[in-house]
Design a protein around this nucleic acid. Structure first.
Length: 831
RNA sequence: GGGCGUAUAGCUCAGUUGGCUAGAGCGCUGCCUUCACACGGCAGAGGUCACAAGUUCGAGUCUUGUUACGCCCACCA
């Protein structure tokens, strides 16, 4: 334990990460009980690409709280997860390895992806695809781990979990079966939002609107009397799927038509005219065609008006080969034949030609811009197809809103997002994905003697069997050779939505249901940190799952981070082409503490600008901590209490800072805690150290003890943010890790009687003396012949108590005072 | 269309129940070197607190409206 001659920031990250790991500094002590634990439901980052500086920011926020709570005496349960299942990984693997999954292919044990990947992806079997995914994921996770330890996340790495591994699969399947048992999960056929490129269903939470160009086409329907009825549509290609036309019940123009039948152009199909509130008299001609299904409004009309289905869109996004029921005229069939098999774009082009030729369209298409639903990661507008899907029932809105009210949101206004979402819910939660790299449903179906799959008869796995894969495992009472045979069975082909698994992170991490001992020590958890864009998914779904399993909130606090933005206020992202350097390069250049410092400047929920300047400032602070500490410790130790008024003043002031920082941290306001600490620290260096050093050089016990008391508290105040440099300094003169030391309290400084004005006045006088020297272009070490201080009696009294230190620090030969209204110093420099 | 948030020096941001002669850091300008730190120290210049009304003895701070930007939600014919 020695203070180095030339302290340096170089290499601190590598040194301390290794030592923390070696000493198990952040290892969770599972003998602790719930009351002594602070449990964090860490967001498992999606393992599908490269981490950027925005991740560093938000994960640092979580770590600030973790380190603070640990120093407050809590045993912090801080696991790390990897979200490595789902579509994002599949797409990533497709790009990186040039393969795509074709479940119809047999497993090829000798297949290895070519490097570099081929331009056109090679189809591989599902087991091959899974292997490659697992491989890529492992590689990416190692890179993530490297970054997280470099930035100093105080995670207990022995508690890591994934969302695709056997443990997560078991918990997901177990949770699913428990819901199924209680009727809270169910299977239903119905209209499903469908991405035609990825060929999978998507949930409401994954939608986004994009405004794209379209055009109104004015179609000519025929009224019963043969006169034209004009209907505007942006999707003429769905005309064959038209099951009715709809107008507002109060719309006088169309009231006479209600209940009658009109005829579609081109196909000559007779459809009813119906009334519904959602029909907007202002839009188009005020009457709309209802197709199964063009958009979500169609779904509402279809459901509420009890209309038939005339589906024509296939899952590959093409017009079905066979015409829908009800389309049977020879001309209609002929026209339909022109469209069958075409994609939407081709079909639209063709049908417009046909309509034109046959007088089914009035005028030219009128270009417009309109919002259309996309899957958030998709490139083509969603279609709606009918399909069999698994759903989880939502609890009623009142229950959900009450949970939302009971979460402590940081910042508070983020709770509104949750409310908005709950109030806008439609239908139930579709958890089915027609994909491969995910958690399979633990379900098989019997096949009857005629070869029909009996979807109405579930064969469920037993809890003890989990995890299972129905495509390789066999249900009780059957043998492998009965798979996909009449009289045999078949596995459910789909996998769960990734959210169906990640909504269980507090349970996966806590060991449920196999390690109920651990679970009881950490659940419900204390903090869910995450960004605001996934309140409607991750946060919301986690609340639901916890409600169904335990009837409680999964955690009490939600810490919401903002985004990192580039200087133009754009969201930082690789795809936008404005992503700055690789975070590892930034960490190497400025040091981890500097990046942590920058991150800590963003209050919860606020966006943060990517600003190299702040990295520099953080780096400077780290250096200053190093040097000031070295200086403060250079006077050695001394026997004796703090008695000097200036020292007491400094400690008293520091005590106030401790109180403020503690209050702020308790409220998750790490930014304020840092700001107060930092402000005090600079004045500690610039004023107090300057004032006290002469006395300290003489071995004055009060000065030396105060310096060490102050430094100890300051280092601990900085420790959550400046984790590496404070640990380094701590190791010079203290035992154990600073991160396992006790958060400071004002009382430990023993300066409750101190008078801060002594320090303030002394600093102000010293400041004015410096100013005079600067004005004269003299060195700050220049001698002062005389200084005359004017001030109020209180100020002069305060100055008197620090007189010796002021004289030494200012090199003042003759310090005199006289009464005045405000503090003013006349300085005469020695010639 | 509904909602939330933000708007303070060139830049990044503080400003907690209304008292501010509006602050910090960076940047800029000038000065001081190496006795903790030049990855340093001291100082200086720099602001109609987005705009407009209102409440008040007093408004950056409260109310209302407007504008700009960001985000969330929305039934998109």
């Amino acid at each position: 334990m020695t203070v180095p001659e030339k302290p340096s920031l170089e290499g601190l990250e590598a040194k301390w990460r290794a030592l923390w790991e070696e000493h198990g500094t952040f290892r969770f002590d599972r003998t602790k009980t719930r009351d002594d634990v602070f449990a964090i439901d860490t967001p498992p980052p999606t393992v599908s690409g490269a981490l950027h500086i925005g991740h560093c920011e938000s994960y640092t926020h979580k770590d600030l709280i973790a380190r603070y709570q640990r120093m407050r005496g809590k045993e912090v349960f801080y696991p790390m997860g990897w979200d490595d299942n789902g579509l994002n990984v599949e797409r990533r693997v497709q790009l990186m390895r040039g393969v795509l999954c074709d479940p119809s292919l047999p497993y090829d044990p000798d297949f290895t992806p070519s490097d570099p990947p081929p331009k056109r992806p090679i189809p591989v079997s599902r087991p091959n695809f899974m292997e490659i995914c697992a491989d890529v994921v492992e590689m990416l996770e190692e890179k993530y781990h490297e970054l997280w330890s470099t930035i100093g996340l105080s995670v207990d790495w022995t508690q890591s979990y994934t969302t695709i591994g056997p443990k997560a699969t078991r918990v997901s399947q177990y949770g699913f079966l428990r819901l199924l048992e209680r009727g809270l999960a169910y299977r239903a056929e119905g209209p499903t939002l469908w991405d035609v490129d990825m060929k999978t269903a998507v949930a409401q939470a994954e939608l986004e609107d994009r405004v794209i160009p379209g055009a109104y086409h004015r179609l000519v329907f025929r009224r019963p009397d043969g006169s034209p009825l004009y209907i505007d549509t942006t999707r003429p290609e769905l005309l064959a799927a038209c099951v009715a036309v709809v107008a507002h019940p109060d719309d006088d123009r169309y009231k006479p038509l209600m209940g009658t039948q009109v005829t579609t152009p081109l196909f000559g199909v007779s459809v009813p005219v119906v009334a519904h509130e959602l029909a907007d008299p202002e839009k188009g001609t005020g009457i709309a065609m209802i197709c199964t299904f063009g958009d979500t409004t169609d779904v509402i009309w279809w459901r509420e008006l009890d209309l038939p289905v005339r589906a024509i869109v296939e899952k590959d996004g093409r017009i079905a080969t066979l015409p829908p029921p009800g389309l049977d005229s020879p001309e209609g069939l002929e026209a339909y034949g022109e469209l069958a098999g075409k994609n939407m774009k081709q079909a639209q082009t063709r049908i417009v030609e046909l309509l034109r030729e046959r007088g089914g369209m009035e005028g030219e298409p009128k270009p417009i811009e309109h919002p259309v639903k996309f899957w958030e990661n998709g490139s083509r507008a969603l279609e709606i197809v009918t399909n069999r899907q698994w759903f989880i029932t939502y609890p009623d809105a009142e229950t959900l809103l009450e949970y939302g009210n009971n979460i402590h949101w940081h910042p508070e206004f983020m709770g509104v997002r949750y409310e908005n979402w709950v109030n806008g819910l439609v239908g139930d939660w579709n958890i089915t994905r027609q994909r491969f790299f995910g958690v399979p449903f633990p379900i098989w179906y019997p096949i009857d003697a005629d070869g029909n799959v009996r979807h109405d008869q579930l064969l469920t796995a037993r809890y003890e069997q989990l995890p299972i894969d129905p495509s390789t495992d066999v249900p009780d009472g059957y043998t492998q050779d009965q798979r996909d045979k009449p009289g045999g069975f078949t596995g459910d082909p789909d996998v769960m939505d990734t959210w169906a698994t990640s909504s269980l992170t507090p349970l996966i991490a806590s060991g449920w249901p196999d390690d109920l001992d651990l679970h009881g020590r950490v659940f419900p958890m204390d903090m869910r940190p995450q960004s605001h864009d996934i309140i409607r998914t991750w946060l919301f779904y986690t609340v639901i799952r916890s409600h169904y399993e335990f009837g409680t909130l999964p955690w009490s606090n939600a810490l919401i981070s903002g985004f990192v933005r580039d200087p133009d206020r754009k969201k930082l992202s690789k795809s936008a082409g404005n992503s700055p350097d690789d975070p590892m390069a930034i960490l190497a250049e400025y040091g981890s503490d500097a990046v942590r410092y920058w991150a800590a400047g963003a209050r919860p929920g606020m966006d943060l600008a990517f600003d190299r300047n702040q990295f520099k400032v953080g780096r400077r602070l780290a250096t200053k901590i190093l040097n000031a500490s070295r200086f403060a410790l250079s006077f050695g130790e001394a026997e004796g209490d703090v008695t000097d008024p200036l020292d007491l003043a400094m400690l008293r002031e520091l005590g106030r800072v401790i109180d403020e920082a503690t209050t702020a941290f308790d409220d998750y306001d790490y930014a304020r805690a840092l700001e107060r600490t930092e402000t005090f620290f600079w004045s500690f260096c610039d004023d107090y150290l300057e004032l006290v050093k002469a006395r300290a050089y003489t071995g004055d016990a009060s000065a030396i003890t105060a310096l060490r008391l102050g430094l100890s508290a300051l280092l601990r105040l900085f420790a959550p943010v400046m984790s590496f440099v404070t640990e380094e300094v701590w190791s010079w003169w203290q035992d154990g890790s600073i991160h396992r030391s006790t958060w400071p309290v004002a009382a430990e400084l023993g300066a409750s009687e101190g008078d801060p004005s002594v320090l303030h006045v002394a600093a102000e006088v010293l400041g004015q003396v410096r100013k005079a020297k600067t004005a004269e272009k003299k060195s700050l070490r220049a001698d002062v012949e005389s200084a005359l201080v004017r001030g109020t009696p209180e100020q002069l009294a305060a100055l008197d108590r620090a007189r010796g230190d002021v004289i030494e620090a200012g090199r003042i030969a003759d310090l005199r005072t006289e009464p005045g209204d405000e503090l003013l110093v006349d300085v005469t420099l020695a010639s």
